[in-house]
Design a protein around this nucleic acid. Structure first.
Lengths: 247, 247
DNA sequence: CGCGGCGTTGATTTGGTTCAAAACTTGTGG
DNA sequence: CCACAAGTTTTGAACCAAATCAACGCCGCG
């Protein structure tokens, strides 16, 4: 039975303990001692379920809280010149939302829901005060921040030539690894929570180019390209293809 | 007399106080109370001057310290497939180096000196412990991290088409603002600390394309393109050009 | 003086965009 | 259960921006 993105992570909101959270093993809580994690819980408010299309925050909104995703998928999106919209980031269960807003104290983009989402809302001041008090939490936060910088900066995303294939493969392979253990991954199969158009926008290419690149990879027998999912049939050869596709 | 990049920020090393540092107003110290800043000083070691070509860190080196640039310019660079090297970042006085290494505990790229450089080396553990103890320092760190994420993620750098002009202009204008008050900026003139080739590499385009784009802008009377500097003659119209160049 | 790195310019190629239309999916209502 | 509408993906053809290849001028330097 093929994976679908519907009905994945149908979470009952308002879980009473972090350990019961679907994203527990990806959460900041999992990286700290249970008694430390227990101090986070009371400062958080659970929100959700938010439905597809709902906005979590709007561009230029005042930044007041971080969000930890329990379940669901979200997308940030900015409008550029002449009304074109560009997807800037996808957020998955366990992700921390807010790092992009902390310095300017306002949200740089709309963030909206792709799949029914439940989140932990943690007021920014409380969270940073907790980081003050608990080294492990501060450590976790710095680590998250650093990871985001590393991924952004040392990806292929800023390359031009022959970039389409490389960028796509890099992202798909990274996603497949990142979503291990969630309902989005089953064996070599990766359920795509976003539409192909959205993925194309995120990757900075036209939907047509994405379609053609996927087709090319499918003809080579490297992937099985479905509407809502992609099967990364031979990840070793895909990684090789990635190596060669970059310049 | 035109600006040159030589002999800028010729710093006597081993200044005895942060207030005397050339980059003081850009430094984390400037954002915190003097007595708090005073606690950072004793944990730092001053290194330098490092000369052009010297390596500050090597790719895969263990991450042990942050570096605050007092004076000079550095560049991070990775080798990709087939020995091509790609500049990933330029670092200027006041910048904090280390955010990209904190999560994996190792440096993701070689970082080497472009212009004679003096730095403050602050052991990572001491620095994070200081952040623990002094909210202002933690605040400063989160702000730096967040700023880097914001700039990376919400720049045009990930666009494909017609990107060359937009990316160049975005970076030049940003740099001109960032380097206000340093020897690199004088009026509308911006001294380029890196070679055109390096700049092209950083911007993800070929040296030829950069040359042509600069030439195009010069013909339009928007810039004056020199070997070691660029004069951003009409920044208002340049900003407009940037708006229209993106898609 | 001649060498090597850097920057420019020209000719050619190519990967990706764009525009247009067809194929397919999904949801809705009769 | 089918017909129709709206949205998404795919395919084709023409176009274009940037890469590549190649040659040349320009210093700075041994």
């Amino acid at each position: 039975m093929p994976l679908t993105t519907g009905n994945i992570h149908l979470v009952k909101p308002h879980k009473t303990s972090c350990q019961q959270c679907d994203a527990y093993h990806q959460c900041i809580c999992a990286g700290v001692d249970p008694q430390v994690a227990a101090t986070i819980k009371p400062m958080s408010v659970q929100r959700g379920p938010l439905l597809a299309g709902d906005f979590l925050v709007r561009q230029n909104d005042r930044f007041e809280a971080f969000y930890l995703i329990q379940s669901g998928v979200l997308r940030s999106e900015t409008a550029s010149y002449k009304g074109r919209r560009r997807v800037k980031w996808f957020y998955f269960p366990g992700d921390l939302i807010g790092m992009e807003a902390i310095s300017s104290k306002q949200w740089p983009a709309d963030i909206s829901v792709i799949h029914k989402t439940c989140i932990c809302e943690i007021p920014a001041d409380k969270f940073t005060r907790a980081a003050q008090h608990y080294p492990q939490i501060q450590q976790q936060l710095f680590s998250r921040f650093g990871e985001r910088i590393l991924n952004q900066e040392y990806s292929l995303s800023t390359d031009f030539s022959e970039a389409a294939t490389a960028r796509l493969l890099e992202y798909l392979l990274q996603l497949h690894k990142r979503l291990q253990g969630t309902g989005f991954v089953s064996g070599s199969q990766l359920a795509l929570p976003m539409t192909k158009s959205e993925l194309a926008s995120y990757l900075g290419m036209s939907a047509e180019t994405l379609s053609r690149v996927l087709n090319k990879l499918e003809v080579k027998g490297l992937i099985d390209n479905q509407l809502q999912s992609i099967d990364l049939l031979d990840r070793t050869r895909l990684a090789e293809t990635l190596e060669h596709a970059q310049r």
